[in-house]
Amino acid sequence: MTLETIAVVAIAASLVVGALFTLVAGIGLLKLNGAMPRLHAPTKAGTLGIGAFLMASMIHSWTYDEGSLHELLIMGFLFVTAPVTANFLAKVNIHRRDCDTPPEPPRDDTWSTLLVPVPDQEQDQDQAQGQA
């Protein structure tokens, strides 16, 4: 009886925390100006919000059902993939020059992120010969 009350209050607290973080992510995505500041809001807060929701789901299933730890799988997957996604999006922003570009490298080098891919010339020649 008392344990169930504590569990229900814990579920409610987790839901409120998750909703708060999700709302912060949405507001940050809308309000921040600049590509890189906008990148910082949802990749952290969105994942924390989902973590709190999954925690609420786990407590709920342990309280009213026979319990499950499956939610840990989604949580771990999101925690692993969120930094990878953020890294890729930061590279996209640098590549499109939507933020401060890095300083020029020494000698005649260029940054690989800023490199614009050139079409494969041999393939173009093959296609030209095929058409001719």
Binding site: T22, L29, G49, F53, E71, V92
Partner: peptide, 23 residues
């Protein structure tokens, strides 16, 4: 305005959809 923002918004929508399904 940028391509990165649109990809980020799509990623956030995916995450929010997971949250809705969990709820």
């Amino acid at each position: 305005p940028n391509t990165g923002d649109r990809i980020l918004a799509l990623d956030t929508m995916f995450i929010n959809a997971i949250g809705l399904i969990v709820l």
